[in-house]
Amino acid sequence: MAFLIDCPNCGRRNPYEFRFGGECKEAPGPDADLNTWCEYLYFNENMSGFQQEWWYHNMGCGDWVKVRRNTVTHEITED
């Protein structure tokens, strides 16, 4: 409970102050082939549970925040 995103600058704020940036993914290396790129671009782990994800505080300080969130319970933990 208490689905709030902890912004290091602004404190705990409502998630609707942020823009969701998706799960954190490792971009393919310089020699990656097309399949690797397509998998990176279109396929997701889409975790039901904890995942690392990006949130952009667009209504606040304008920083990107990396958050570890449980997508089922919305519990947020430290990295």
Partner: peptide
């Protein structure tokens, strides 16, 4: 314009 700001911030981050 609105997206550019966050996009630039993303790469800086």
């Amino acid at each position: 314009a609105a997206v550019t700001e966050e996009w630039l911030a993303r790469w800086c981050r």
